[in-house]
């Protein structure tokens, strides 16, 4: 067994610490606006009944001026899954709204991240095998440029050309308006159809980083002694590259994938807005426009939770891929 209990405990402990930091940041967010959050909520009485406001204030401990008590109540409510009530979509609970939006964002991200990772490392390795060739120069040059492109701009261009000019793809949303007219199979096809441009816009930008990082690591690995020795052993070139060089070269890419997740999530939120894709990003955007603060707060927590969980999973899987990291 390569993964020791000690290692697992350390990683889980760190994930919990990070989560605590995220929750704490979330708790302080409304207090950034200055003044008392209770008063702020009270000023929104036009959005709901005064009874609800009072109930909410009691729930989150806002009637008690002690900030530590409020902090404590905040945790208690979160532990019960209570993220508050949306002002805009009253009386919907924030949790419910997020629960409906999350699958779209997660789906979008999962597809985009997996494709960009696979294609990115493949291109990066091809470059590293022919350093200085025209193929390498073009891919590296393009990657440098794509790395600098804002996600939402790619999204707007794709929408403009792919959907408006060419009419090849829908102009937005995740589902056709008359969704009830389709059978399950037809619905799946149309959901995928709606997802093509959003995924593509994420893909184009996030692929560049994987290309550049993989290329660097692969070049490094190819100059290592163990690759020279693999050649000296008379191994076929394919085995030298894939079995001996690529395995070590890809380990940092794997870590990089996780570290980049936060960035891609940020990009996905913006992409969703451009495509009116009904995910968490769209929810945040609407909430920003409508000053629907509980939704913003809740959305951040959910996003942070997902990213932290993904990182934890990666940390736990990593020792299985790299035998050198076992007991630390």
């Amino acid at each position: 067994m390569r993964v020791s209990a000690r290692y697992v405990l350390k990683r889980v402990g760190f994930a919990l610490l990070t989560l605590w930091a995220a929750v704490t940041a979330d708790f302080f967010l409304p207090r950034l606006m200055g003044g008392n959050p209770a008063e702020y909520i009270a000023s929104q009485t036009s959005l709901g009944s005064p009874q609800l406001i009072a109930a909410l204030k009691a729930e989150f401990g806002l009637t008690n001026p002690n900030p530590f008590y409020q902090y404590w109540r905040y945790f208690v409510e979160l532990a019960h899954g209570n993220l508050g009530v949306s002002y805009e979509y009253y009386p919907s609970r924030v949790g419910t709204l997020l629960w409906h939006a999350l699958p779209f964002t997660v789906g979008l991200l999962l597809v985009a991240v997996v494709i960009s990772f696979v294609v990115g490392i493949f291109l990066g390795m091809l470059c590293a095998w022919r350093p200085g060739s025209w193929f390498d120069s073009i891919v590296v040059g393009t990657s440098f440029y794509l790395h600098a492109v804002p996600y939402f701009w790619t999204a707007m261009l794709l929408l403009l050309f792919g959907a408006f000019d060419l009419k090849a793809f829908p102009l937005g949303h995740a589902l056709p308006a008359e969704a009830q007219n389709f059978g399950p199979a037809g619905l799946v096809v149309r959901v995928l159809w709606h997802g093509v441009l959003p995924v593509l816009s994420l893909l184009l930008v996030s692929i560049a980083g994987h290309v550049l990082v993989t290329r660097n690591n692969m070049l490094q690995a190819l100059s290592e002694d163990y690759v020279v020795l693999a050649r000296a052993k008379g191994l076929p070139e394919g085995q030298v590259r894939w079995r001996y060089a690529a395995r070590t070269a890809l380990l940092p890419s794997f870590t990089g994938l996780m570290l980049s997740l936060g960035h891609v999530v940020g990009g996905a939120l913006l992409t969703e807005i451009v495509f009116s894709y009904p995910g968490v990003g769209q929810l945040i955007y609407q909430a920003i426009l409508n000053h629907d603060y509980p939704v913003i707060q809740g959305a951040f927590l959910i996003v942070a939770l997902c990213v932290i969980a993904a990182n934890l999973m990666a940390d736990l899987v990593y020792p299985l891929v790299d035998p050198r990291v076992s007991l630390t």
Partner: peptide, 18 residues
Amino acid sequence: LLQVIPTIVLLIIIAAFV
């Protein structure tokens, strides 16, 4: 810790609140 927390999202959220 800050590396794991999605800072871009945090940035957006803070900007939205301030």
